[in-house]
């Protein structure tokens, strides 16, 4: 796509080529500048808010002398284990439920109930079950990411194109061949959409889990910063979480695009 644009319009100015990046960066710089100026003018109470300079200072402090790295590692481990488990089980269960009609009808009430309930409501129960160690957090991440992946996979397997099905049948395809050559490849984009949604919901699960029942992790860092009126630490935690979210979503989107090259709308 970018190739076409370059060859189509060779004499674009530097600004025209990078308009999105330039305007986007400009807005960030201006907002941070205003924020810092208001802070320096004493318009913001340090009790309720922080400043860019204080956040950078606090970030460096927690990174070098504090527990930021350990917290990030702790949260990252929770998220990684829970999320990978959710992908594996979600895809397998989704394919089976999507393919076998009876299994779907059997699981449907249960699935609907779970899908409609915010999984966050189960956090206290999960902490009762698993304690406040790592496994309660892993399970919360797992539960948060599992359902979007499952539901999207089921939808993908069920969205078999009728024309393709007819063609496969005309060529004497067996059920197993239809499953292998139509149902599975056809559901890949759906699975990747599920994974992208699972990333977002899994992160929420991770943060909430650590806020409610943990003495470590980035979620705990935010909660603790709030309880001790340490807004600088609170902001550092929020920014770390925000950047992880942006990075993971971006990765998931790239993965999604990579596997949907054959899709006409891209």
């Amino acid at each position: 796509m970018s190739k076409k644009k370059k060859s189509g319009r060779p004499h674009q100015s530097f600004y025209a080529k990078h308009e999105a990046v330039i305007l986007g960066s400009l807005s960030i710089v201006i907002i941070i500048g205003i924020w810092q100026a208001c802070w320096s003018a004493g318009m913001i109470s340090p009790l309720f808010f922080s400043s860019p300079s204080a956040i950078v200072k606090q970030f460096r402090y927690t990174l070098v002398e504090g527990t930021l790295l350990a917290d990030m590692k702790y949260s990252g481990t929770n998220f990684a284990i829970g999320f990978v488990l959710a992908v594996i089980t979600g895809v397998i269960a989704g394919v089976l439920i999507g393919w076998y009609r009876r299994l779907r009808l059997f699981c449907d009430p249960f699935l609907n109930a779970f899908y409609a309930t915010p999984r966050i409501a189960m956090v206290p129960l999960i902490i009762i079950w698993f304690g406040i160690g790592i496994w309660s957090k892993v399970f919360i991440v797992f539960l948060s990411a599992f359902f979007p992946i499952l539901v999207n996979t089921v939808g993908g397997v069920r969205a078999l194109d009728r024309d393709l099905l007819r063609a496969a049948k005309a060529y004497c395809a067996s059920d197993w061949q239809i499953f292998k050559t139509l149902a599975i490849p056809g559901s890949v984009p759906f699975i990747l959409t599920g994974i992208r949604q699972g990333v977002a919901l899994g992160l929420i699960g991770m943060v909430v889990g650590e806020m409610v029942g943990s003495s470590q992790g980035v979620g705990f860092m935010v909660a603790y910063g709030g309880q001790t009126f340490n807004t600088d630490t609170l902001f550092v935690g929020m920014i770390v979480i925000a950047f992880s979210g942006i990075l993971l979503t971006w990765l998931a989107e790239r993965l999604e695009r990579r596997f949907s090259r054959w899709r006409p709308e891209r």
Binding site: D163, L164, A167, A170, P185, R263
Partner: peptide, 16 residues
């Protein structure tokens, strides 16, 4: 296997 159909809608697998 003694028959093959050419369909009105090309019915091609988009990912192949």
């Amino acid at each position: 296997v003694d028959r093959a159909v050419v369909f009105q809608h090309s019915s091609l697998l988009p990912w192949r």
